[in-house]
Amino acid sequence: MNTSDNSSQSAKAHRTVYSAPALEKGLDILELLSDSTEGYTLNQISKALERGVSQIFRMVVTLHRRGYIQADENDRYTLTLKTFRLAHRHSPLKQLTRAALPLLHELAQRAQQSCHLSVYEGGQIVVVAQVDSPDRWSFGLKTGSLMGLTDTSSGHVLLAYQDEAQRTRMLNNHVKVEGELSVDPGQLLSLLADVRARGCSVMPSIQTQGVTNIAFPVRGPNQKVVAAINVPYITRIDGARRPTVENVKTAQADICARLSRQLGAEEED
Rank of each mutant, 00 (worst) to 15 (best):
S4D: 15
A11I: 14
T16G: 01
A20G: 07
A22L: 03
L23V: 14
L23Q: 12
L23G: 06
K25H: 05
G26S: 05
E31N: 01
D35W: 09
T37P: 01
Y40E: 00
T41S: 08
Q44R: 12
S46L: 10
S46V: 08
E50Q: 11
E50N: 12
Q55W: 05
I56W: 09
I56V: 06
R65F: 04
R66N: 13
Q70K: 15
Q70C: 15
E73S: 12
D75Q: 13
Y77V: 03
Y77Q: 10
T78A: 04
T78C: 06
T80H: 10
F84L: 15
R85W: 05
S91M: 03
P92V: 03
L101A: 07
E106G: 13
A108G: 13
R110T: 06
A111I: 06
A111F: 07
Q112L: 07
Q113I: 00
C115N: 02
H116M: 09
H116G: 02
Y120W: 02
Y120F: 05
G122R: 03
G123W: 00
I125F: 08
I125P: 09
V126L: 13
Q130N: 03
Q130L: 02
P134V: 07
D135H: 01
D135E: 06
R136H: 08
S138Q: 08
S138R: 08
F139I: 04
L141T: 02
L141A: 04
T143W: 11
M147Q: 10
G148P: 04
G148Y: 00
G148T: 04
G148W: 01
T150R: 14
T152L: 08
V157R: 11
Q162S: 11
D163V: 05
E164K: 14
E164G: 09
E164L: 11
E164Q: 15
R167W: 05
T168Y: 11
R169A: 00
N173A: 13
H174E: 07
K176A: 10
V177L: 15
L181P: 09
S182L: 15
P185T: 11
P185V: 12
G186W: 08
D194Y: 15
D194M: 14
R198N: 14
M203W: 11
M203F: 11
M203C: 13
P204M: 15
P204C: 12
S205H: 00
I206D: 00
T208R: 12
V211C: 05
G220M: 09
N222P: 06
K224E: 13
K224N: 12
V226N: 00
N230L: 06
P232R: 01
Y233F: 14
R236Q: 14
D238A: 00
E246S: 10
T250H: 15
A251V: 03
A251D: 04
A257K: 03
R258Q: 07
G264F: 09
G264N: 03
A265S: 07
A265M: 07
E267N: 11
E267P: 06
E268T: 08
